[in-house]
Design a binder for these strands. Structure first.
Lengths: 215, 215
DNA sequence: CATTCAATGTATGAGCCTCTCACATCACTC
DNA sequence: GAGTGATGTGAGAGGCTCATACATTGAATG
């Protein structure tokens, strides 16, 4: 049995794992995470429904691999367009805006990157975020008041991360209207909010209490 | 056919819809949204697999109903423990912390409240958030500089919303360790970050920082 | 009361999906 | 050129969503 595979020249695919990840991203862009199925990915890649399981333990493993790919692309975007922004303050603020714009471009990509279940069960996804933190930490240290504990810089990054993810979520669920239409405005607003956050953590006299800022 | 239903005294359940919502919340607390199935909910409620579809159009509709219930409970928490906090500044900051603490208590509940697909397709979920905004808007107006446009107050609330959701997501995915262990610390950090945000939007001379837009 | 009927539950099944297992095919090594 | 491990195929078990036809019942109506 096992007739020649249809839709391909050779019996073996060549690089099925990579092809599946790519196809997965495409499917998710079209129908969302919930609409995605391993079977559909196999179909579009012209392999049998069981083939993907040679490379990925289960559906979630494939999704996680796709999410990692998204993470790599985000990193590239950061390095290409934010890393060289002048001041540390503006650099950190710009990350938030850039993140929002990337969300509009990758849509479903960010859906899986932040899918609740996936991150909880696949630590490599959290690791990929940590690498991002390492990239930004120097900037955070520059911004935080000199006497502050190192933990404050990390806390600032966590806060920025939270803020950006929250904006992305609101953008993608259509809270502000069609994502394509409002992307730029939301990005600007996210940047503005990030600036406020950065300013708050930069105050010398500890956390921003009611006393922290004058005026 | 149609023998007497097993596990119940009467043929009719009484209030199947409500029971299903409750059961749904329990299941999601145990196995997450992805592990949830309408069939399992029916099983635990001792009705046939088809019965839920008399009350909910499809799986997502049941999830959305459960999410709405979560939203109601959150509202109750707010009214019971935050609404009477002294200053508007502290009130807004406290919302973030309270939200984080509620997340630890309801776990999966917040997963569905913020599930990407659901909010996009079920506007009533977004409406429920909007009601929350109405509750907080007066506080936001108090905080924002007098000359500011009304939009600034709304923008502040969006930023707070984003921030809180981001912290909740990080908490629930275990980024800081076992959620139960770190809840209080994360809540405090969220509150602090929220204070920074509020302070940033309260500065009279427009948004924080210079007019330098991000690149 | 008796009857009707709309609401609610059951039974059945089609179609899809995930994941497994035995077997086929192929690239590579010795 | 035979052996071997990696990769793909086919078949199928078991679960799920949802549609459809039928059963049961409480409540309204006469």
């Amino acid at each position: 049995m096992a007739p020649t595979p249809k839709g391909r020249a050779t019996y073996h695919h060549g690089d099925l794992a990579a092809a599946l990840v790519q196809t997965t991203l495409e499917i998710i862009d079209e129908v969302g995470v919930r609409g995605f199925s391993v079977a559909e990915a196999a179909r579009r890649t012209c392999v049998s429904p069981g083939a993907p399981y040679r490379h990925f333990a289960d559906r979630d493993a494939l999704l996680a691999a796709a999410a990692l790919e998204v993470s790599r692309r985000l990193r590239a975007i950061y390095l290409g367009s934010v890393a060289d922004v002048g001041s540390a303050q503006e650099r950190l603020a710009a990350v938030a805006g850039t993140f929002v714009r990337a969300a509009a471009r990758y849509r479903g990509g960010l859906d899986i990157l932040f899918a609740p279940g996936l991150r909880a069960t696949h630590p490599e996804l959290r690791d990929s975020s940590r690498e991002f933190v390492d990239l930004l930490l120097p900037s955070a240290f520059e911004v935080v008041a000199p006497g502050e504990a190192a933990a404050t810089a990390v806390a600032l990054l966590d806060a920025l991360h939270a803020l950006a993810r929250g904006y992305v979520a609101q953008l993608l669920e259509g809270k502000f209207g069609d994502p394509d239409d409002v992307v730029e405005e939301v990005a600007i607003r996210a940047t503005r909010a990030a600036r406020a956050l950065v300013a708050g953590y930069g105050v010398p006299s500890g956390p921003v209490g009611e006393e922290g800022r004058d005026r």
